[in-house]
Amino acid sequence: MDITAPTIMLTLIWGLAIGCIYILLATGLNIIFGVMKLVNFAHGQLLMISAYLSWTISVSAGLNAYAAILVSMVIVAFIGILVERLTFRRVLGTDKLNEIFVSLGLIYIFENIAMLIWGTNSLQIPSPLSGLNLYFSGVSITYDRVVAVFVVIAALIAFGLLIKKTKIGLAMRATSQIKNTAMLMGINVEKIYMITFALGAALAAVAGGLYGIIFSFNYQVGAMPTIIAFAIIILGGLGSIKGAIVGGLLYGITEQLATLFINGTWGSAVAFALLIVVLIIRPHGIFGEKGE
């Protein structure tokens, strides 16, 4: 097979398209980490729950799939609050490994509840745009993918504005920098934690809805995206939003180029090899700061 310039060009586009959903998931993980210094390994299970919720809402209520995502976003944000209150809040500040343990337990709980409710079959959310394609210079992309890219960009911009321009954002930034001082300045840290976790969960919910429209999913679908999202924020640097975006694109493109030049089985292995090399050179990721 000849690898021509258009083929490589296409491969890069696929890398970008794939990177998008992971970036959304990674941003959610990262904001939670930035503010609460906590890594939620069960983040992908929120994506999974959201995919199922969006499916149920759009199939049973006949709602447009993209509108269904909005509804599921609200529900998942509440689930996020519940999870934070009941579990993570109680282990904050104890041994770092405790968060991994709690989230592993949550993975079992979420996955098997989903299996009890929705069964074991794979599902896909019916999209109003299915079968429609966008053509440009010899490339055709489904509208669903194009929409996904724009939704991700919009979500990230909205999120950025929230952090930069609002009072809550300010409080979140203050908490992420120096928790105790923030507390002294009258910021209700517990409330900020709650909002942060809800926000992260909402981002995962959007990612889940988009995932469910583009791909099929079952109750085990959350595991791989979490690990990839986690690899992305480790690659970019924990707590850095810029890092999540750069890491996401780097991961997506590396994976797809490896798939093109070697074969599909090498995709994730090469991407993880890149991660290991980056960490050996920079132990805190590309944009990571020392200290965490």
């Binding site: 097979m1 083929t7 890398g15 398209a17 797809q256 599909g264 089985t265 995709g267 994730s268």
Partner: peptide
């Protein structure tokens, strides 16, 4: 061949 865990086949399909 592709990794059984993946859900993205575009690059393989492009090839």
């Amino acid at each position: 061949a592709y990794d059984p865990a993946t859900t993205n086949y575009q690059t393989d399909l492009t090839a």
